[in-house]
Design a protein around this nucleic acid. Structure first.
Lengths: 109, 109
DNA sequence: ACCGGTACTCAGTGTTACTTTGTACCGGTA
DNA sequence: TACCGGTACAAAGTAACACTGAGTACCGGT
């Protein structure tokens, strides 16, 4: 994966995580693994955790501590109503961007 | 335009400008106006100029000074071979991102 | 007793776009 | 003549975000 993606992820990674949590509750390690499976091999673990802290502080997710069989307790995050609103907004902004970019790609200018 | 777009533009704005220049040579003020016309009303003039300086320093564009009828001389930028390569790379990375995001949007998770 | 996989945390860094301010040229108007 | 608005570019300082690297801790298997 080109490291160019790093900068492109700014502003979208948070939305991606909200989107993942919209599907089902998950914990940090799980989300990281999921992203790596989908080809985002360069996303650092620390990045995901930092992001989860941020969305938690913004009140977009609910958190529950769940004991794990093999390691420290998991912090399981789930999207709440505020989070759903933020996710909708994210998709709106994302659509705006992709539409313009697609147009740019097709017309040459 | 939501200010959420600001962060999303990081990493894509440079590609957008390369894409515009691929269509035809242009100067800073013109590019800014073009972007505003397309709905990117919040993009600051200074941002575009700074970006043009950057792509010039990276050797992705050729520059020509052209006298203007109403104002200081224009710096007209055109994409060179290196720039075309960078643009191709950009579209590749962009496709990668959009495909994953679209997938995320459709499956819920 | 040790090692590897699981799971989370935090301080410091680099890149990027924004903000603000400034310079300068020109045509039109009062 | 003096001023103003639109054109055109430049540069210093700021904020947000993802990365890096190091650390802590729990557990099962050898």
């Amino acid at each position: 994966m080109p490291k160019q993606i790093t900068e492109m992820l700014k502003g979208t990674l948070e939305g991606m995580i909200l989107a993942i949590l919209a599907g089902q509750a998950a914990y940090g390690y799980e989300i990281t693994a999921w992203l790596r499976d989908r080809g985002f091999t360069d996303i650092a673990e620390g990045t995901v955790y930092a992001l989860l802290v941020r969305v938690e502080q913004r009140g977009l997710v609910d958190v529950e501590k769940v004991p794990s069989e093999k390691g420290p307790p998991r912090k399981v995050y789930s999207l709440n109503v505020e989070g759903q609103k933020a996710l909708d907004e994210f998709w709106g902004t994302w659509s705006f961007l992709t539409e313009r970019l697609e147009q740019l790609r097709n017309e040459g200018k």
